[in-house]
Amino acid sequence: MKLVVPVAAKELSPNSPLVNYALRGLERCWLPRERRWSHIYHLDGRASPNESMAHSDVFYTLNVLLGMSRVAELPADIDLSEIFQRNAMSLTALPVRKYAFGMALWAAAELHLPIPEQVRFELKAILSDESQWSAFRAQDLGMLLTGVIAQARAGEREWLGFAGQLYRFLKERFRSQSGLFFDAPSGFRRRFASFATQTYLSIACYQYGEFTGDVSALVMADACVGNLIALQGPQGEWPWFFDAVSGRVLDFYEVYSVHQYGMAPALLEWAERFGRRGARDALVKGFNWVLGHNQLCRSMLVPELSLTIRSQVREHELKTRAPRILRALRNTWLEKGKALVDSADVTIRLECRSYELGWILWSFGQRADLRGLSHNAAFEQPSHLPGD
């Protein structure tokens, strides 16, 4: 897979420099034998930087394909249909989470591709057995509902019958009085919700509300976005961990680059459409965090590879999550909010994951109104790439 953009022709490309940056980065993550994008591209200088983990590769690949559905010009050797069919079929043979099936629904709808029959059969089994929904986490429910609505919008009305049931389950079991969403329908873990929890469920509510005309879904999504904007960090950081009961930030870390340039813009695009005050400013501020407006005062880009650095993390938590979990529990029971820590205690996680670049494609593939971001000089192709 190779994207070639001659220097003289850059301005002729229908893609923005940001989109072409992500496409070049995805070349690095491509696994030609497996026909998918990798789980991790390590940025620590190792000889073989791509790390494959089959079930993760497959989900990330579907996420990348979703992003590619919004790109005007793709590399000539990308066969979207073949890659989708191969990886979607793998869902029935690998230990994937239910949200991967939701991503397959969503990507297929946006790409106008058929869903393999085995996958369709398993999906309908998942959606028909409400007794199993109690095991859903927020990402499972959010992606399944989004995928169902995307299919219905694409004309596949057979999926619409599941939409109302999924939305009622969301409304009854995942909505918190704080305005944020719970991470699970029940249990101790329920109140400890991530930024991803809020993103996936809010997007699902926007999708459902717009398609069905159910105003309650739009109100829930807007309330969540309003809370997230109010909780955004001083330099645009999107916090990672929340207490959904009180609506407080439990921990800012890790601060993930994909939230800043991909997932938050995907959500805030919906919020802008429905008139949420401050949505665009929050998007721009969050994106600029990646460009160096952060507490480490460093860019989170790797321009020589057209990749991004995964996150900023507390230095002693690079290899363990235990302190983070204990800290969240303590802050919950002490009813303490969290702020950023001293930058001397913060480092970076030297890896990039292919789905992160996929979110860039989705969030900016069709946007022409944020040229300060999409056409930033940081995304221009270097005249020479080391090792090329």
Score class of each variant (00 low, 15 high):
residue 249 V to G: 01
residue 225 V to M: 03
residue 192 F to C: 01
residue 253 Y to W: 07
residue 234 P to R: 15
residue 248 R to Y: 10
residue 217 A to L: 12
residue 212 T to K: 00
residue 252 F to S: 00
residue 180 L to M: 02
residue 198 Q to T: 00
residue 220 M to R: 04
residue 176 S to E: 09
residue 250 L to Y: 12
residue 217 A to F: 07
residue 147 G to C: 02
residue 192 F to P: 03
residue 200 Y to M: 04
residue 173 R to T: 14
residue 242 F to H: 05
residue 243 D to H: 11
residue 146 T to Y: 10
residue 184 A to W: 02
residue 245 V to G: 13
residue 223 A to E: 09
residue 199 T to Y: 08
residue 248 R to M: 09
residue 210 E to C: 04
residue 159 W to R: 01
residue 251 D to A: 01
residue 179 G to V: 03
residue 170 L to S: 15
residue 202 S to W: 03
residue 221 A to E: 02
residue 184 A to Q: 11
residue 227 N to K: 14
residue 210 E to L: 12
residue 149 I to D: 04
residue 150 A to W: 11
residue 154 A to P: 00
residue 210 E to I: 08
residue 156 E to Y: 14
residue 183 D to R: 11
residue 250 L to C: 11
residue 238 W to L: 13
residue 168 R to G: 01
residue 237 E to F: 00
residue 252 F to Y: 14
residue 248 R to K: 10
residue 220 M to K: 07
residue 172 E to Y: 09
residue 210 E to A: 11
residue 183 D to N: 11
residue 174 F to R: 15
residue 148 V to M: 07
residue 236 G to W: 05
residue 179 G to K: 04
residue 236 G to D: 06
residue 176 S to D: 09
residue 162 F to L: 03
residue 241 F to S: 15
residue 184 A to H: 09
residue 205 C to P: 02
residue 253 Y to H: 06
residue 158 E to G: 07
residue 257 S to Q: 13
residue 224 C to A: 07
residue 223 A to G: 14
residue 159 W to Y: 14
residue 211 F to K: 03
residue 237 E to K: 00
residue 212 T to Q: 03
residue 147 G to N: 01
residue 152 A to V: 05
residue 186 S to K: 13
residue 198 Q to L: 00
residue 178 S to Q: 03
residue 202 S to H: 06
residue 222 D to K: 15
residue 233 G to Y: 02
residue 149 I to Y: 07
residue 230 A to Q: 10
residue 216 S to E: 13
residue 165 Q to P: 07
residue 246 S to T: 12
residue 223 A to N: 12
residue 208 Y to H: 05
residue 162 F to A: 01
residue 193 A to N: 08
residue 162 F to T: 02
residue 186 S to R: 14
residue 193 A to T: 08
residue 196 A to R: 14
residue 165 Q to W: 10
residue 153 R to A: 08
residue 250 L to S: 13
residue 232 Q to R: 09
residue 205 C to W: 06
residue 164 G to K: 06
residue 176 S to M: 02
residue 164 G to V: 06
residue 226 G to K: 10
residue 233 G to H: 03
residue 182 F to S: 11
residue 192 F to A: 08
residue 164 G to N: 07
residue 254 E to C: 01
residue 150 A to T: 14
residue 209 G to K: 05
residue 163 A to N: 02
residue 181 F to S: 02
residue 160 L to M: 07
residue 245 V to F: 06
residue 230 A to G: 13
residue 165 Q to S: 15
residue 175 R to L: 15
residue 176 S to I: 03
residue 185 P to E: 08
residue 180 L to E: 13
residue 184 A to K: 15
residue 242 F to N: 00
residue 180 L to Q: 13
residue 224 C to S: 08
residue 185 P to D: 12
residue 188 F to S: 12
residue 202 S to D: 12
residue 253 Y to I: 05
residue 159 W to G: 07
residue 256 Y to V: 10
residue 191 R to M: 04
residue 157 R to W: 03
residue 217 A to Q: 09
residue 215 V to P: 00
residue 226 G to F: 03
residue 191 R to A: 09
residue 195 F to L: 11
